[in-house]
Write a protein that binds this DNA or RNA. Structure first.
Lengths: 205, 205, 205, 205
DNA sequence: CATGAATGAGCTTTCATTCAT
DNA sequence: AATGAATGAAAGCTCATTCAT
């Protein structure tokens, strides 16, 4: 049973990893299932033992990647209690992930936008949870009187994510990185923090 | 000749407009040239008198749409001299456009991400110019001593655009808008302004 | 319009005729659409301009063939008033058709049986009408006091058709024909009209 | 060895019986080997320990079913000496079988027709023997002076079988049976024995 | 004997693009 | 310029069959 699972998850993993490479290189629609199969060193038909169809590969890939991102970001901020630092950590963790795993980033960049199209009915729960980590931090900061209570967490979480994401996009595309991860993370969290901090929060810095 | 041109540009325009609708509905890869032709009330073959191929429709469409966005945003801020207000105006203009023309928004959302990857050789000049409007405002503010000189315009412009864009994405997808355009625009520019303002800038508000 | 129709029906006809050949040779499931296309001297894609899918080719073919059979059999018996002769004519017309167009026969042989399977929901109106020609003749004969009034036309029509059809099957399959069309037609209609019993046999009953 | 054989024939039987169900439901070409395996509660690969390939399942199934039919029909007529009664018994036995085992019937209906096509080289000995039971009865009747000596047994056997078979086809397909087995069997054998003509009709000839 | 995961050839269907009219 | 019928390459997916366990 364990051996069987291991065998299974081996193929499953190999296919996912191959798909990441192939999708990142060509985009979803220009990728052929046979190319993924070749990259995963399995037969074409084997793909369909682990995934329902091509779309399912993307969705599975997405779920898996997002779970990894969630786990890592949550680990990065869990040790921290200060919302200000949490936000900085979040930004840093997000951008680090992008840097470490450009292929995955590229896919998310493109496909998160397409999801609404071809994943009609696919409820992007994982992504929603990711955004809510941000708003939770903000609410926490507001509860502690550090963040401006008038800030709307629902807007701020998207703005913050959007800022990080667009920065990532630039990185993924441009071969040369003008700014370091740390610089960018600090810079971006700084915009939002300065913008959201109360006087008390400011004094605390 | 002029009559002919007019006729030409009529068909050209009809095809572009049809393509906007069709691409917005189905996404680029799930859109058929024949569906665009039907929507534009021309024959399939006619499309190829005005565009080299399907990709070319998207690029042309994109250029045209971006030009419109550029024109409009530039008009919105040109009357204004204060960089602070300019940034607010930019945010408002951007979000207004999204609200008014969701189809165009959807396309920008998706295609901005795909274009750079899959339209090899397509240099997205218009989009670069759009981002530079933001960084120009920031530099202007820094020159006037209103914005923190340490802020990196190259990061800030992306962060600002990303924040607006992610907000737009949310809007385009969610049928119910929780926040008004004006609220969102103010909120987002506020984050960045509070974050970037110098003491002098702050006093000026 | 007429020219267009002619052109259309030309391709349509060519595809149907090619399909008859190919289906007769290989059977429906072992026939490739591309083989039909080659036989019809059109491109693979062209098939799909005239038919919805492979199944639709068979259904259309079937309808068309049955219509031809109906027309011909009706013509053969329409001049005749005597039900006895009508039945003989029917048998002869049916078997002549089989002899003249073996390919069509083979398809009907097989596909009439499959229809219930893969043409679920396809109501075989033409075939029902064909059978009813037989029962109409029988009813006519009964009204004229020539046929036994206790004979059930609903059973007799099927029995008569079945007899002819099985005879056809044999012919289509066996390369050498032991009996002529005329002989077989007479023989079969004779069974139904007079039975096989001798006077002695009859008395014994 | 005997135990092993028993085990073998158990699996063999289970597979055949599963195949009857599956083929009857979907037809041969739309049936998957894996579905038969599931229905037989064996592994896919196990099928290939007992049968050479999918075709072989059908042929074996066919042989087995036909043997059962032969046995039963022979039993039904063996006790009888009168050819007239034999023919009636044959008809009744055939239709009873159809009624009792519709799945088997459906398969014979379809596959008897396809066999010649896709089972190239498969000599349908069992079916030939079945038909010859009919012609033997007829010859017997002719020898006894009960049947018209001019009747060609080679035609008559096919006509008689065809009549019964078409009647079966109707039954298998139509959910509601208008006529009872006994009625139909009597009716059909009556056609062949006595014909449909009245005395008046006979005189008119 | 039995299993069932893996294979990969093969097929239907789609659709961007062409070109005769 | 405009048409739209025709093209045919291309790809997703299926499933009979195999073979390592």
């Amino acid at each position: 049973m364990t051996a069987e699972n291991k065998k299974n998850s081996d193929k499953h993993r190999r296919i996912i990893e191959a798909a990441i490479k192939v999708f990142a290189k060509n985009g979803f629609y220009n990728s052929k299932v046979s190319e993924i199969a070749r990259a995963a060193q399995v037969a074409d038909g084997t793909i369909y033992l682990y995934f329902q169809n091509k779309d399912d590969i993307l969705i599975s890939l997405f779920e898996e990647v997002m779970q990894g991102v969630l786990d890592r970001v949550e680990a990065a901020i869990s040790k921290e209690t200060n919302p200000v630092v949490k936000l900085e950590r979040f930004a840093h963790a997000h951008l680090s992930l992008v840097e470490e795993n450009q292929e995955v980033s590229e896919i998310i960049q493109v496909e998160i936008r397409q999801s609404s199209k071809f994943m009609r009915g696919y409820d992007n729960v994982k992504f929603a949870r990711y955004l809510n980590i941000i708003s939770d931090i903000i609410k926490e900061g507001q509860a502690q009187g550090l963040f401006n209570p008038e800030v709307k967490p629902g807007i701020a979480k998207r703005a913050f994510f959007g800022a990080l994401d667009e920065m990532s996009r630039y990185w993924v595309l441009s071969p040369v990185k003008k700014y370091s991860i740390t610089t960018a993370a600090k810079e971006i969290s700084s915009f939002f923090l300065q913008g959201m901090l109360t006087d008390r929060g400011r004094r605390q810095l």
